[in-house]
């Protein structure tokens, strides 16, 4: 069981690490969009790793199914919220921005 515990602790620690990176990115990045990258993104990975650790700790049960549902919910709503903020910022300064084509 000790091996499983160590794996769980590693998952929780790396999840916390990604949250930490998100906060550092929020403080260091220069403008709205780049800050969005740092925060919303490290949230997905941090929350994902922490929930994965919790599922392992709980084992195969009804509660871990619930945690999985919460994870899916976070992963569906997080980009939606990020998109809403980004689109508002984009619409407000659309004229002054440069857009490149992919080719």
């Amino acid at each position: 069981m000790i091996v499983v515990d160590i794996i769980i602790i590693l998952f929780l620690l790396s999840g916390t690490f990604f949250f930490f990176v998100g906060v550092v990115g929020l403080l260091r990045m220069p403008n709205v969009f780049t800050r969005m990258h740092a925060t919303t993104k490290c949230d997905t990975m941090g929350a994902g790793l922490i929930f994965a650790g919790l599922i392992m700790w709980q084992g195969f049960s009804f509660i871990s199914a619930n945690i999985l549902l919460i994870l899916i919910f976070v992963w569906l709503t997080n980009p939606t919220a990020a998109h809403a903020i980004a689109k508002t910022a984009y619409k407000r300064m659309e004229d002054s921005l440069e857009i490149e084509d992919s080719e």
């Binding site: 990176v21 550092v24 990115g25 990045m29 780049t34 997905t44 990975m45 440069e98 857009i99 992919s102």
Partner: peptide, 28 residues
Amino acid sequence: NIIKSNIEVAKIVLSKKMPIDPGFVKIK
């Protein structure tokens, strides 16, 4: 993809110079 690019973004955020080149791109 999420795991790979998360590690890349974490590297960028934690590096001293922050090698970013932000901008908008249109894709089809």
